[in-house]
Design a binder for these strands. Sequence first.
DNA 1: CTTCCGACACCTCAAAAGAGGGATGCAGGT
DNA 2: ACCTGCATCCCTCTTTTGAGGTGTCGGAAG
Lengths: 216, 216
Amino acid sequence: MGSSPKTGTSPAVIRVLTVDDHALIREGVAALIANQKDMSLVGEASHGREAIEQFRSHRPDVTLMDLQMPEMNGIDALIAIRSEFPEARIIVLTTYAGDALCKRAMKAGAQAYILKGNVRKDLLDTIRAVRAGKKFIHAEVAAELASHATDDSLSEREIEVLSLIAAGSSNKLVADQLAISEDTVKGHVKNILSKLGVNDRTHAVTAALKRGIIEL
Amino acid sequence: MGSSPKTGTSPAVIRVLTVDDHALIREGVAALIANQKDMSLVGEASHGREAIEQFRSHRPDVTLMDLQMPEMNGIDALIAIRSEFPEARIIVLTTYAGDALCKRAMKAGAQAYILKGNVRKDLLDTIRAVRAGKKFIHAEVAAELASHATDDSLSEREIEVLSLIAAGSSNKLVADQLAISEDTVKGHVKNILSKLGVNDRTHAVTAALKRGIIEL
DNA sequence: CTTCCGACACCTCAAAAGAGGGATGCAGGT
DNA sequence: ACCTGCATCCCTCTTTTGAGGTGTCGGAAG
């Protein structure tokens, strides 16, 4: 790369799409990219549905995707885009360092997961790396990921139960809402506590919130 | 004020300081302000301590302050700046719509409280309004505020107890950590449940998180 | 100087939650 | 066919929580 005079996929500008419900963030990304000779912002979207439309019409080389947006969240948009365009290169750019969120995003086909906090140098480097086909997970998140490497993740049902508990339901109420017996709920709760390594339901909820397993 | 031809405090540019731990947000603010003829960005800070320094050296007309930053949070920075410069005009610019957070910020001397989400038009208008001495609270937050207008807020001690509960402590453990009797803790918990309008400790924690009374 | 409120403490009692055990059926993969 | 994970249900037992009610003490506000 460099001496050969040719087609030049490398020297071509990287076409970027930014997806974030916060206008300020999109503005920041736009400003950052405007200063790069090898990049160009080709579109913006403020939620998942719009992201899909923008992707269809612009076919960006790299997409910066926030999670937690109105209308349609980033994970769902990620899945939708990747199912339609399997070669899509998508970087998750979020505030949350939860390991569960990161796992879901990477499983959904994200190429990188970085935090809005320490973006200074990471963002631009990551865009270039991802365009080149590499993957990247922010160190802070990677540490989270590593610290929970051993413990198995919650099942769909367990997440459902835990969400209802977080919303203020007792075991009996959860049982009613899910149309199962209270004993079954207790069984689920026991597994949840064990998997999260906590001793009571309240701590289970806060631990799951920290890790991005459930939302408020 | 308006028809008289004079000193011109109004036509002068509004000098703005932006405080946010997210570089992208600062970048976005900078880009937005750069397009306004009547505004000029005079400084940036990524946490509370730096905000105080920057305020001292630049004396901005208006300061945009995020809450929840490392080193020193926005509320504390707000208080510190306002105690040193009582005329300081500070706009809280945050992601969180919790009414408790807003109440604390306004009590600490903030002139406005707006959300990063719907910034498009609000931000610039708010900067001008605040410079002119007006106050402003984002509609979404105001609604939150109104919906909790009647219920009294938690005492310091109650917040302390609730935080420990959120961290996974039983009543007995909370009692040990605060060096009080378990019965007293139960008394506090009872008041907490009553004030927050919930039936159990887990819901109390999630309700308090939503309202910005405690943090994760 | 009262009056009110918050923090503190003690009591009883019923309901919920958590720890222990075991058992069934069903789906997916080997 | 077998095994494993998951969801489901049942039982017993102890601990924790939450709902009642009462009272003291100190400080802040009236």
